[in-house]
Amino acid sequence: MKRFLLSLSVMFAAAIAKTQPLILEGLAGDHYLFYQHLIAKNFSAESAFGVMHIANVSSFYTSNKNKEAKAPEVMNQAYLTAKLNKSLTLLTGIFYSNATGIRVAAGLQYAVPFKNGLWVTVPRVDIMNGGSAELMSVLELQPAIKEHTKLYFRIQAMSNVGPYHHNRSYQRVRLGITIKGTQVGVGMNLDEYGRQTKVHVNTGIFLRRDIS
């Protein structure tokens, strides 16, 4: 079942690969395989409206001796987007995870590109009773080393809380190089679940491709 869920997301991303821009990433870690993709596209070059899809799958190894190893963790977000100005984009749509089920959600993306980098922060809320509030931020740096080669560094952090307690947080760190739109290097995922915010660490090798 774990392999099926991971394969399903990979096949879905491959089937829509012509929908650009598309960012794909995989991490082969010591505790689980991690896959994610991001698709963001306006309806037309002149339109302020568009669509966004984000998917994450963590597939834990069955041979993992860690007694806290879990079933696959699946997260999908699908939004209609409305660009408010150069930096702000409104998101409205559906959030799904195997822990929460389907939730109607809304968020606001604030993106600031700068020389050799990008900063994005996204506050998001579930629009329903007993929902949750979330804040996700990404800092990405790509200073040039030589022609067609850049240093690649990214840190991504998210924290989600419900009405009464912490639900889920993570911190994802990547360090490697970029060669013609492809990043490869070492990565670390730090995960926290529920009321007990014990940190679970997954380290390994990542491969990322930005198709734009």
Rank of each mutant, 00 (worst) to 15 (best):
Y61H: 05
L141F: 13
I179Q: 14
F12R: 07
L84C: 06
Y61L: 06
P72Q: 03
A99I: 04
A99M: 00
S47W: 04
T178V: 09
I102N: 12
V161C: 08
R3S: 04
G93T: 05
F95E: 10
K65E: 12
Y193W: 15
G181Y: 06
R174A: 03
V125G: 10
Q109W: 10
P143F: 05
P113H: 13
T182K: 13
L8H: 07
T121F: 02
S132Y: 05
Q171I: 15
M136Q: 12
Y61Q: 07
L135S: 09
Q183V: 10
T81K: 12
E140Y: 10
L84M: 13
R174N: 02
N116V: 04
V57Q: 01
L84S: 08
Q36T: 06
T203F: 01
Q77D: 10
D30Q: 09
I145E: 10
L8V: 05
H148K: 08
S137H: 05
S159A: 11
G185Q: 02
N129G: 11
Q171V: 15
V184L: 14
A40Y: 03
G50E: 03
V161Q: 07
A13M: 13
Q109S: 15
T121N: 12
S44E: 09
T92F: 15
G204D: 00
M1Q: 11
L207F: 05
L88T: 06
H148W: 02
G181F: 07
N116S: 15
T62N: 13
Y110P: 08
I177N: 01
L135N: 13
L207I: 05
A45F: 07
E134R: 04
L80T: 11
L27H: 00
P163Y: 11
V51Y: 02
T81L: 13
F49A: 13
P21I: 04
I94T: 14
Y110M: 14
K70R: 15
A78K: 10
N64T: 12
I145F: 11
I127W: 05
V173R: 00
G93V: 04
I39H: 06
G204K: 01
S169Q: 07
A69W: 02
H53G: 01
I179S: 05
D210S: 12
Q109E: 15
V186H: 08
P143R: 06
L80R: 09
N56C: 03
F153I: 10
I177Q: 04
L139C: 07
A71I: 00
S169L: 02
Q20N: 09
M136R: 13
R208V: 00
R103H: 15
A13S: 14
H166C: 07
G204I: 02
Q196P: 10
F206E: 00
T81V: 11
L90T: 03
G107Q: 08
G107N: 08
G107P: 11
D210Q: 09
I127P: 00
S59C: 05
G131Q: 06
N98T: 03
F60L: 03
I179R: 11
Q77K: 14
Q156A: 04
F43R: 11
M158H: 04
P163M: 12
L84W: 08
M128G: 09
Q156K: 08
I102S: 06
N202D: 11
V186I: 15
K83Q: 14
T92W: 14
A133H: 15
T100H: 03
